[in-house]
Design a protein around this nucleic acid. Structure first.
Length: 741
DNA sequence: AGCACGCCGACT
DNA sequence: GTCGGCGTGCTC
């Protein structure tokens, strides 16, 4: 049992956000856990603190260590629950406790907000003036400075006084006791969305929806397993969520709804407002830190029942949590890209476990990982396979681009797609052209047969480098660039290069009269441009919308009757084991955009890979078939979720040092870890091998047991700490990578 | 954050 | 001398 406890004294203050170590008296050692509130002596006073870590290693002069006084058993409060959650995150995703705490408790902002208290001069002007004279005479410089400033401006913010006038809190306190000034705290909550009248809510669920609701409620009463709702687009998942939230609210419980930032449209928000009125709060990236902490504060006080927002909304301090709903759970944005690289799904499940809540995952195309858990029985699988309005699925055609080349059509649009666009333009209907931009990073493929250059060891595509070599980012394998296709001998082998801009030009050339809108990272850079472009298109100010993934989400365009996917297979060749999954999800979503109105829709998928299961299954809208094929591949290649994967990133200004560090870790692990099942790959360059002159090397570990990988992470952390000498190297971890380093 | 400690000008 | 305010640094 651990001898010492690292304790944080006050979470809300930057200057004290380090840990202090205390001895654990033997009589309470069985009670102490991470996150627990304890009473400790601190200086000459006694205060409460939170246990952050239990350890056997003394990090401080043992002679000076004090004993923990007592355990504070005043129920488990949200703070201590969050500390325990942060501890869990640190353990599972690496990094320091402080990094974990900062993601979980954004309380710093709140403290800042508190500091923006106002100091007001309450003494009449002439009295204050004579007091000022007296103070000056007595050389009480600090007080004089403060009073002088207040005579200029009767109300000043606390911040300005302490930081700019260099006046300490004691002085302000003393002046307050003298009755010269008052300190007021401004506490105005700003609701980011205008308050809406709660409408009369009359919607009744259909039988399928009601069945799902009943099953979730029953499960929440008993097993509290995470639930995965596999519901096709248009099956009415949002109504199910709202019904569950209302049910939880009826029992005095609050809910969190996580959505990918991009899907947080006005439409969605309004639906929640209509049903729950101002018991709903929204969080998004445009909120200022102050507004954000206001929202959290409201949640803490029990003024709201529902919080809707992106990943970070998971840390809303509700004290009596009912449901955590994760919509579009397959989305990559749920994985954090900064330390700790946590996954919102896993973290939500842990938070739910701690607080007795239930996690609900929803998607039309569930992540392979979630579906795998559902099939294993870890999650409760519920499916909604019918659309509410029974609209037929759009007609879907796959066009083999290799045939186009054979027919000497070198255009980016196949003959079939060209003809169909022409038709829509005549009929005054709208077209969406979707270009798959993931994987534009330079894989090499044959335009005659569709063959893609792949790594013989990793089954991911090779990356073309400027030095004329093809490189694998998983294992570092490299070979010379090829001039002729090793599969069919054609000389049409090259990197596929076509950005949205280029495509816009080409389409314009082919359809000079069509009005074209383009949506990509360039055109959506400014603030509201995203909504603007979409609403322009919705108002039929254009005939064709060309864009990347961002056009396939959210918004319904009833007049769109044709969706063209220009190169469906581009995303198949990203050097990432999620390639097929992403492709399937994108194609399914893109196809779902067609025929949302009265008129039936049509979808054309252009690809060099018409036989690939992700393409075929998307055409048939057959998720189950896709899952079976994909899980077989994951199993065979020992990728997650069947096995687990740990990426260790070594970064340094010196390339040689980064490599040496990775190599050293690899060699040590080889010796230390006797487990035969453990697979180690690398070191290799990271996908982006150099950023801001910092070189990045990666090392991969694979093992069926997550716990073994955590042990490796711990070992690496330990090794790095031991030789924390002159070396300027940083090491990061990523488990079951989603977005890569 | 809060508190002690040490420094320094002012006043009996 | 000593009283009291101000700045600094420490708290396991």
């Amino acid at each position: 049992m651990a001898k010492y406890a690292n304790i944080i004294i006050d979470i809300s203050h930057e200057k004290l956000d380090k840990t202090f170590q205390y001895r654990i008296p033997p009589e309470i050692k069985d009670e102490i856990t991470e996150g627990m509130q304890v009473i400790v002596p601190f200086g000459n006073r006694t205060i409460k603190g939170y246990v952050i870590e239990l350890t056997d290693k003394a990090e401080f002069d043992t002679a000076k260590l004090k004993d923990i006084k007592a355990v504070d058993n005043n129920a488990m409060q949200i703070e201590s629950q969050f500390i325990a959650l942060a501890a869990w995150m640190r353990k599972n995703y690496g990094g320091t406790m402080n990094q974990a705490l900062k993601t979980v408790i954004p309380i710093k902002e709140k403290a800042k907000e508190k500091k923006s208290r106002l100091v007001r001069l309450v003494l009449p002007f002439n009295e204050a003036a004579s007091l000022l004279e007296e103070l000056k005479r007595k050389h009480r410089t600090a007080r004089a400075r403060l009073l002088e400033a207040l005579l200029e401006e009767t109300v000043l913010s606390y911040d300005v006084i302490t930081k700019k006038l260099h006046i300490t809190a004691d002085v302000i306190k003393a002046m307050m006791q003298q009755g010269v000034i008052t300190v007021e705290e401004v506490r105005t909550y700003r609701n980011p969305v205008r308050t809406q009248e709660k409408g009369a809510y009359t919607l009744t669920l259909n039988a399928m929806q009601q069945k799902v609701v009943d099953a979730v409620i029953e499960n929440a009463r008993t097993e509290k397993k995470p639930c995965l709702i596999h519901g096709v687009t248009g099956s009415g998942k949002t109504e199910v969520y709202m019904e569950l939230i209302a049910e939880a609210a009826g029992r005095g419980k609050q809910s969190i709804v996580l959505i990918p930032e991009i899907a947080l449209t006005y439409q969605t928000v309004m639906r929640f407002y209509h049903r729950f009125g101002d018991r709903v709060s929204i969080m998004n990236s445009k909120l200022s830190p102050g507004e954000r902490s206001d929202q959290f504060e409201r949640a803490k006080k029990g003024e709201i029942d529902v919080m809707i927002g992106p990943r970070s909304a998971l840390f809303t301090p509700f004290s009596n949590l009912g449901y955590i709903i994760i919509d579009e759970e397959h989305e990559g944005t749920y994985k954090s890209e900064t330390i700790p690289r946590y996954h919102a799904r896993e973290t939500a499940i842990e938070r739910a476990r701690m607080s007795g809540a239930t996690v609900i995952l929803g998607s039309a195309t569930p992540s392979i990982e979630s579906f795998y858990h559902a099939k294993k029985g870890d999650y409760l699988l519920l499916s909604m396979d019918k659309r509410v309005k029974e609209k037929p699925l759009p007609q879907c055609e796959i066009v083999d681009l290799r045939e186009e080349l054979k027919a000497r059509n070198f255009s980016i649009l196949s003959r079939s797609l060209h003809k169909k666009i022409e038709q829509r333009l005549l009929r005054k209907e709208q077209v969406m052209l979707f270009i798959n931009r993931r994987g534009m990073a330079g894989f090499v493929s044959c335009r005659a047969c569709g063959h893609v250059m792949k790594c013989p060891h990793c089954d991911v595509s090779l990356h073309a480098h400027n030095n004329g070599k093809l490189i694998c980012h998983y294992c570092g394998y490299e070979q010379n660039h090829v001039k002729i296709c090793p599969n069919c001998g054609s000389k049409y082998i090259s990197g596929f290069k076509a950005g949205t801009q280029k495509i816009e030009e080409l389409v314009k050339k082919e359809f000079p009269k069509a009005r074209i809108l383009r949506m990509d990272f360039d055109t959506t850079r400014s603030k509201d441009s995203y909504e603007k472009i979409l609403s322009a298109f919705a108002n039929q100010e254009a005939d064709i919308l060309i864009g990347t993934q961002m056009i396939v989400k959210g918004h319904d365009f009833p007049n769109v009757t044709l969706v063209g996917v220009l190169a469906a297979d581009l995303s198949l060749y990203v050097s990432d084991y999620h390639a097929a999954e992403r492709t399937f999800q994108l194609l399914t979503q893109a196809a779902g955009r067609a025929g949302r109105g009265e008129k039936p829709g049509e979808v054309i998928i252009q690809t060099y890979n018409p036989e690939h299961y992700s393409v075929i299954c998307a055409k048939n809208q057959d998720y189950n078939q896709f899952y079976e094929e994909e899980i077989f591949y994951r199993q065979a290649m020992r990728y997650p979720p069947v096995w687990h994967m740990l990426v260790v990133l070594c970064a340094s200004k010196e390339e040689a040092e980064a490599y040496a560090c990775a190599k050293e870790l690899a060699d040590t692990m080889e010796k230390v870890q006797a487990d035969k099942k453990l697979q180690m790959i690398g070191p290799a360059d990271a996908a982006v091998a150099k950023v801001n002159d910092i070189y990045k090397k990666v090392l991969y570990f694979k093992h069926p047991d997550y716990g073994v990988l955590i042990q490796i992470k711990d070992k690496v952390e330990q090794l790095m700490e031991e030789k924390q000498g002159v070396k300027n190297i940083s090491v990061q971890f990523d488990f079951d990578p989603v977005n890569g380093f």
